[in-house]
């Protein structure tokens, strides 16, 4: 029941955002849009509620959301900027030294490993290729392999993704 209510409310908020400026009956929305939005959100809540809300409510903590926003604005965006200057340099000069390495970030939850894989894909010189689902290890395609990183196996996280695992542990675990 709580899954249905949460999903419906989130859907309805999204619907209201996308239909701003549709009329002048209720603020900036028209009656037709609001009634249709409620019906549609209820249908989506019925179908997708069980998938969207799982058993644990760890992610319902606002502190985690604030940490997530700080993560996206701060270290993540800086990483994206650095990544693009790096790729621009490599496109223009054509200097590459690629390889696929394995890292074990030590994250346990599915959401955490998903976020780390997506972050790695958008940050300097790395692209996540495969996941070992038993141990949550990631295989990373690295466009410029450093010599000193290869001495230890699996490769130390700090060469590939900096301090991202620390942030994601604070957000998702």
């Amino acid at each position: 029941m709580i899954a249905f209510i949460v999903t419906t409310i989130l859907c309805f908020i999204t619907y209201l955002l996308f239909t701003t400026g549709s009329g002048t009956d209720l603020g900036i929305w028209s009656y037709e849009e609001i009634i249709f939005g409620i019906v549609l959100s209820a249908i989506v809540g019925l179908i997708a509620g069980k998938i969207f809300v799982k058993k644990d409510f760890r992610m319902a903590n606002p502190v985690r959301w604030l940490t997530f926003i700080a993560y996206v604005i701060g270290p993540f965006f800086a990483g994206v900027v650095k990544a693009n200057i790096d790729v621009a340099y490599r496109v223009i000069t054509g200097k590459i030294n690629p390889g696929i390495v394995k890292i074990s970030p030590g994250l346990k939850t599915d959401l955490g490993i998903t976020m780390l894989a997506n972050s790695i894909t958008l940050t300097p010189g790395t692209l996540s290729v495969d996941i070992d689902e038993d141990k949550n290890d990631l295989y990373i395609h690295w466009i410029n392999v450093k010599k000193e990183a290869l001495q230890k196996k699996p490769v130390d996280c700090k060469y590939v993704c900096g301090n991202f695992p620390k942030w994601i542990r604070r957000i998702a675990e």
Binding site: I96, N97, P98, G99, I100, V101, K102, V129, D130, Y139, V145, L150, K153, P154
Partner: peptide
């Protein structure tokens, strides 16, 4: 192509 290492 030209990989120095391929763990996978």
């Amino acid at each position: 192509v030209g990989a120095v290492i391929d763990d996978l």
